[in-house]
Simulated assay, not measured.
Amino acid sequence: MPKTSKESAAETFRLEGYEGHFDDLEGGYTVGFETYTQTADLTPLFKGLPDDRCQCSHWGYVLKGKVVFKTADGEEAFQTGDAYYVPPGHTPEIFEGTELVEFSPTDELKRTLEVVGRNLEAGE
């Protein structure tokens, strides 16, 4: 069976206020170990996707801190110790000091991150 950890993950991304370690697992899922050192409303990064919202589903666990997912139906907060599922059609707000582990379908995540990357380059 495949395994990974924050330390052994194949890809690492660092931005101001963020560090993420990612690895693709067999079966079509990507695991991300993410740390946020600044509060961030990530809504602008999804501009250009349907409804300007993330179109990838995620299963996660909040190791520390707080994340809020906003959908057309409202918003829901998850805090330290909470496991969650969020369907496509959301935008996240993540708070300073948050650490989480998140599993996402690899193909959908890659399509989403292409748009996020373009928005980051454009200064969104």
Rank of each mutant, 00 (worst) to 15 (best):
Y85D: 11
A83E: 15
F69D: 11
K66V: 09
P87Y: 12
T39R: 01
G97A: 03
D24F: 09
L113H: 01
D24W: 06
G123Q: 14
Q79Y: 02
G17Y: 12
Y36M: 08
P87V: 14
E96L: 02
G17M: 09
T35D: 02
G20L: 04
L63A: 06
F95P: 00
T12S: 06
V31S: 02
A9L: 04
R111Q: 15
F69Y: 15
F69N: 10
A10L: 13
R14H: 06
D52G: 08
F103A: 04
T43Q: 12
K64L: 01
G89R: 08
F13P: 01
G65D: 05
G32R: 05
G123D: 14
F78C: 10
E102F: 00
P92I: 07
L113P: 00
E75S: 15
L42N: 05
E99Q: 14
L15E: 08
Y84Q: 06
C54M: 06
E76D: 15
E11W: 06
V116I: 11
A72Q: 13
E96Q: 12
D51S: 14
T4C: 02
A83F: 15
E121V: 11
L120P: 00
G60F: 04
G74W: 02
F103E: 02
G48H: 11
K70W: 11
V101M: 08
L15A: 08
S8F: 03
Y29M: 09
P44Y: 09
D52F: 04
T4H: 09
P92Q: 06
Y84I: 05
E26P: 15
V68Y: 03
P44E: 09
Q38C: 01
F33W: 13
K3Y: 09
T106E: 05
P50D: 05
E16S: 14
A40W: 13
H21V: 01
D41W: 08
E102C: 03
E11H: 05
P2I: 11
G27L: 04
T91R: 09
T106V: 05
G60A: 05
E34W: 09
E19W: 02
D73Y: 04
F103W: 13
A10T: 13
C54A: 13
V115T: 06
P50N: 08
T71L: 08
F78L: 12
E75P: 08
K47C: 05
F22D: 03
L45R: 00
A77G: 13
T37G: 09
R111G: 03
L45M: 07
T80N: 03
R14E: 12
T30E: 09
T112S: 08
E102H: 02
E108S: 10
D41Q: 11
Y29L: 07
D23I: 04
F78M: 11
T112F: 04
G65V: 03
F103M: 10
L100N: 11
V116G: 01
K66F: 07
G27F: 09
P44Q: 10
L63Y: 06
P2D: 14
P92D: 10
A83P: 13
L100Q: 14
E124P: 00
A10I: 11
A10P: 12
D52M: 05
Y18P: 03
D82L: 01
D41N: 15
R14T: 10
G97F: 02
P88R: 02
Q38A: 08
S57G: 10
R14D: 06
